[in-house]
């Protein structure tokens, strides 16, 4: 009990100390899109089916007065939905809003609240279209706003810290949950409910938001943000790209249907030679990914002969993000393969 008291006393001192240094606080643009971090449940023990109200951006800020000690926050609400409802129109709106905000000299970085289910897709999309080396940090929560031992507040606090950190500059779009700073490209949700759900399989996080400091151990090497050739500034939609899931006896029915629905690209996790050939005659681009969730699809002479682009180690949902952007610029397979090797 006394230890707890000391810890509380220390942390309130810490907060008080930080709040005093309010001169010239860095500006952070906070974009809210919704997600579990902005969801309310019927009672404190409710960790699922929490659909008893949404948390407004103002409620988020009022809930976390400590933020005022570390940044000047400027909030923009993009949406207030679960990430299952995230769509191209909202993503484009978000990307344009972030680019506009980061172009202002007073803004040090951006934070985006997002549902965790598809957070990695939006993060990777932004990683490819944000035109700034200022930090952009996506944050979410695994437990709703109303839950006992909820993770959202500390995640949000850390996300703002990272967005103001000079070390985070040039690292590309980042994901902040569970004290871990992860790279948008390499990180995936790996568990339905646990708070350590976001992992960059094989490659690990870039660093940590620890109490003593923000610390980085790694810098990502694949192209992103200021080094990216993709620009959505003038776009109001993106080409349709779908994903097929492979399993024993899965056939080409899904591929045929996607092509019939107007898909300009299909990401494969298995192989359906006939359906692929049919699609290719209609100009559809196929990318080979994999359902395992780790490891690279290696470039091979056989895949090239078949005119199928390999996805490196991008999981299908991220290969889709890159292919959609690639198709805004080219349908040349060699050129698209180059993009998959570089981004």
């Amino acid at each position: 009990m006394s230890k707890l008291f000391v810890a509380l006393a220390l942390s309130s001192l810490f907060v008080a100390y930080q709040a005093r240094a309010d001169v010239d606080l860095p500006g952070v643009a906070l974009f809210t899109t919704g997600g579990t971090i902005q969801s309310k449940g019927a009672h404190r023990q409710k960790l699922m089916e929490y659909s008893d109200g949404r948390v407004t951006p103002q409620e988020l800020l009022d809930d976390l007065p400590e933020l005022q000690g570390i940044a000047k926050i400027d909030v923009t609400e993009i949406s207030n939905i679960g990430s299952g409802g995230m769509n191209t129109a909202l993503q484009l709106k978000l990307a344009k809003a972030i680019n506009a905000a980061l172009a202002k000299p007073g803004v040090t970085g951006a934070v985006v609240t997002h549902g965790t289910a598809t957070l990695e897709e939006t993060a990777y999309f932004l990683n490819l279209v944000v035109k700034s080396d200022k930090p952009v940090v996506l944050v979410g929560a695994m437990r709703p706003f109303t839950a006992v031992s909820r993770d959202g507040p500390f995640n949000l606090y850390n996300a703002v810290r990272v967005a103001t950190s000079p070390q985070a500059k040039g690292m590309g779009v980042l994901i902040m949950l569970n004290d871990e700073i992860n790279a948008a490209r390499d990180t995936t949700k790996s568990n339905t409910y646990r708070m350590e759900t976001f992992v960059a399989r094989d490659l690990g996080p870039l660093g940590y938001a620890d109490s003593d400091r923000i610390v980085f151990y790694r810098r990502p090497l694949y192209r992103h943000t200021t080094k990216s050739e993709f620009d959505v500034g003038a776009l109001d939609d993106l080409p349709r790209v779908d994903v097929t899931y492979a399993y024993q006896e899965s056939d080409g029915v899904a591929i045929d249907a996607f092509v019939a629905a107007g898909a300009r690209g299909v990401v494969l996790t298995g192989s359906n030679a006939d359906a692929v050939k049919k699609g290719q005659t209609k100009g559809v681009v196929f990318v080979q990914s994999d359902r395992k969730g780790a490891g690279r699809v290696v470039e091979s002479a056989r895949q090239m002969e078949r005119g199928i682009v390999t996805s490196d180690n991008l999981p299908p949902q991220k290969a889709r993000v890159l292919l959609r952007l690639a198709l805004t610029r080219t349908t040349d397979l060699k050129e698209i393969q180059r993009m998959f090797n570089e981004y």
Partner: peptide
């Protein structure tokens, strides 16, 4: 294993590929 922070690349059959560089 790269404890906590993972590997920085792979020696795969098609190529040697790096995703990260160390900051320290």
């Amino acid at each position: 294993k790269g404890v906590d922070v993972g590997a920085i690349g792979f020696a795969d059959p098609d190529k040697v590929v790096f995703y990260r560089e160390p900051v320290r």
